[in-house]
Simulated scan of single mutants.
Amino acid sequence: MRFATPLVPARLIRRYMRFLSDVELSDGTVVKAHCPNPGSMMGLKDEGMRVWIEPNDDPKKKLDWGWRLAELPDAFVGIDTGAANKVVAEALAEGIDALSGYDVIRPEVKYREKSRVDFLLSSSGRRDCYLEVKSVTLSRQAGLAEFPDSVTARGAKHLGDLAAMVEQGHRAVLLFLVQRTDCDRVTLAADIDPTYAAAFKAAQAAGVEVICLACAITPDGITATHQLPYG
């Protein structure tokens, strides 16, 4: 996934009200940027850190800038949770080994009660595959990516929905997309959200599969690369 407009480096002043941030451009100008991440963004919102923002000329959007990347001393992190589905959609089109062999890939399909699955994969003679994507940006230990970074009742509901699909005879997969370049394995942050961890354990027991993908990230774009181990 290439960014639609070349990103601009800036310095973070603050992130506030969940979806807003103030950043300073290289010429000293302070601008307001949309922060497309509802999580805690632990470790990614420190004052003074280098960030990359995208200019926006869409008159329908309220802000002229959107925050896209956080730059750490040894890594890039994609903070836009909405980008995860775009990255996975491209990866599915190019082929993910564990999800190959499906002829039709449909995004945002309604199912269960007030739910939408990120992707529904289908093919004649095969079980439908319900694929839920989660963007992973938290890392509190070198090399280890964790999900979630805050309590997510919605995420726990999604796990229950996936388990229900398995019980109905379908295939269900939870895909963790690790949007940071300094991690080589993935696990749950059970201390942050014990309820989600319990729902995850129940979903796995019901037959929900887990796939973890790494990303290559630069100010030009984000691409899913290879599978990472979970555990």
Score class of each variant (00 low, 15 high):
His226Ile: 08
Met17Asn: 14
Gly48Gln: 01
His226Arg: 12
Ala214Asp: 14
Ala214Phe: 09
Glu113Cys: 12
Gly101Val: 10
Ala153Thr: 11
Cys212Met: 07
Glu108Gly: 11
Ala153Pro: 02
Val104Leu: 11
Ser150Phe: 14
Val133Thr: 13
Ser124Glu: 12
Met17Cys: 12
Val109Ser: 09
Val109Asp: 09
Pro73Glu: 03
Val51Ile: 12
Asp46Tyr: 04
Lys157His: 11
Leu162Glu: 00
Val208Gly: 09
Asp97Ser: 13
Gly28Glu: 00
Val31Cys: 07
Val117Asn: 06
Leu72Ser: 03
Gln179Ser: 15
Gln179Pro: 15
Ala198Leu: 13
Ala84Asn: 08
Lys32Tyr: 04
Gln168Met: 12
Lys157Ile: 11
Cys215Asn: 14
Phe3Ile: 03
Leu213Pro: 04
Gly155Lys: 03
Ala75Trp: 03
Asp97Phe: 07
Thr225Leu: 11
Val87Gly: 13
Cys212Arg: 08
Ile192Trp: 04
Met49Cys: 14
Gln168Cys: 08
Tyr16Asn: 03
Leu92Trp: 05
Ala89Leu: 14
Pro59Asn: 01
Leu174Met: 11
Asp193Lys: 05
Tyr111Cys: 15
Val30Met: 02
Asp161Phe: 02
Leu69Gly: 05
Ile53Val: 13
His158Gln: 15
Lys60Ile: 05
Lys157Thr: 08
Val173Ile: 13
Leu25Thr: 01
Ala224Trp: 12
Tyr102Trp: 07
Val8His: 12
Cys183Pro: 06
Gly207Arg: 08
Ala216Glu: 08
Val88Arg: 12
Ser21His: 00
Arg112Ala: 15
Tyr230Arg: 01
Val77Asn: 06
Pro36Ala: 02
Leu162Val: 03
Asp97Leu: 05
Asp64Asn: 09
Met17Gln: 14
Leu188Cys: 05
Met1Gln: 09
Asn56Arg: 06
Ile192His: 04
Gly221Leu: 08
Gly101His: 10
Gln168Pro: 03
Val186Leu: 14
Val88Leu: 12
Asp182Asn: 13
Thr152Pro: 00
Lys86Met: 15
Asp27His: 05
Pro73Leu: 04
Asp191Leu: 13
Met41Ala: 12
Ser135His: 10
Met41Pro: 02
Ala214Asn: 14
Ala216Gly: 06
His34Ser: 07
Leu228His: 06
Ala198Gln: 14
Leu177Ser: 08
Val186Met: 14
Ala93His: 10
Pro6Asp: 05
Arg11Met: 11
Leu177Phe: 07
Phe176Val: 00
Val210Arg: 04
Thr137Tyr: 00
Arg50Phe: 02
Val77Leu: 10
Ile217Phe: 05
Pro38Gly: 03
Asp64His: 07
Arg127Pro: 08
Glu71Tyr: 06
Asp149Val: 00
Phe200His: 15
Ala142Asp: 02
Pro38Phe: 03
Met165Ser: 13
Ala197Val: 09
Arg126Lys: 13
Asp27Met: 06
Met42Glu: 15
Gln168Val: 04
Val117Lys: 06
Gly28Gln: 00
Gly101Trp: 10
Tyr230Phe: 15
Ile13Tyr: 01
